[in-house]
Deep mutational scan, measured.
Amino acid sequence: MLYRITVRNADGEKLEIVVEMSEDEVRALAEELRKAGYEVRVEPIPEGEEP
C-alpha cells in the first residue's frame, strides 16, 4: 500500500515522502523516526488516488 510520510525536525523543516510498504513496515519506520526525535505523520493513500 502507498503511504505519505511527513517528517519534521526540531527546527520545523519538513520532508514529505511517498512509500510503498506494508502497514507493519511503515509503523516500524515511524517509530524509529520518533525515537530519533522527529515528529512523524503517516497517512495511507487510498487506491486510485494520486500520491
Rank of each mutant, 00 (worst) to 15 (best):
L2W: 14
L2D: 01
L2I: 06
L2V: 05
Y3W: 11
Y3L: 03
Y3T: 01
Y3D: 00
R4C: 02
I5F: 05
I5M: 06
I5T: 00
I5P: 00
I5G: 00
T6D: 02
T6N: 04
T6I: 09
V7D: 00
V7A: 14
V7C: 04
V7R: 02
R8E: 06
R8G: 06
R8T: 11
R8F: 15
N9D: 03
N9I: 09
N9K: 15
N9Y: 07
N9L: 08
N9H: 07
A10R: 11
A10H: 13
A10P: 10
D11M: 13
D11W: 13
D11C: 13
G12R: 04
G12V: 03
G12Y: 04
G12T: 03
G12M: 05
G12A: 03
E13R: 14
E13F: 15
E13N: 15
E13P: 08
E13L: 13
K14S: 11
L15P: 02
L15E: 05
L15A: 09
L15N: 13
L15D: 05
E16K: 05
E16C: 04
E16R: 09
E16G: 03
E16L: 12
E16H: 07
I17C: 04
I17W: 14
I17G: 02
I17E: 03
I17V: 05
I17K: 04
V18S: 04
V18F: 10
V18H: 06
V18I: 09
V18E: 06
V19P: 00
V19Q: 03
E20P: 03
E20H: 10
E20Q: 14
E20M: 13
E20T: 12
E20K: 13
M21N: 02
M21L: 12
S22G: 08
S22L: 14
E23G: 07
E23D: 07
D24M: 11
D24I: 09
V26E: 00
V26D: 00
V26C: 03
V26W: 02
V26I: 07
V26P: 00
R27S: 07
R27K: 08
R27A: 07
R27F: 14
A28W: 07
L29T: 04
L29H: 04
L29I: 06
L29A: 03
L29Q: 02
A30E: 05
E31S: 13
E31N: 13
E31H: 13
E32S: 14
E32R: 15
E32F: 15
E32W: 15
E32M: 15
L33W: 15
L33F: 14
L33R: 01
L33Q: 01
L33K: 01
R34Y: 05
R34T: 06
R34V: 07
R34M: 06
K35W: 06
K35E: 02
K35Y: 06
K35N: 05
A36N: 11
A36I: 06
A36T: 08
A36H: 08
A36E: 03
G37S: 02
G37L: 02
G37P: 01
G37K: 02
Y38S: 03
Y38N: 04
Y38K: 03
Y38C: 02
E39Y: 15
E39V: 14
E39M: 13
V40I: 06
V40A: 02
R41G: 05
R41Y: 06
R41P: 00
V42H: 03
V42Y: 11
V42T: 04
V42A: 03
V42M: 04
V42I: 12
V42C: 05
V42P: 00
V42W: 13
E43A: 10
E43L: 12
E43S: 10
E43M: 08
E43N: 07
P44Y: 07
P44L: 08
P44I: 14
P44N: 09
I45G: 03
I45F: 08
I45K: 05
I45D: 06
I45A: 04
P46Q: 12
P46Y: 11
P46A: 13
P46M: 11
P46I: 13
E47F: 13
E47Y: 13
G48F: 11
E49R: 05
E49S: 10
E49D: 10
E50M: 11
E50W: 09
E50K: 14
E50Q: 11
E50N: 13
P51V: 07
P51A: 08
P51F: 01
P51K: 03
P51L: 02
P51Q: 08
P51D: 11
P51C: 13
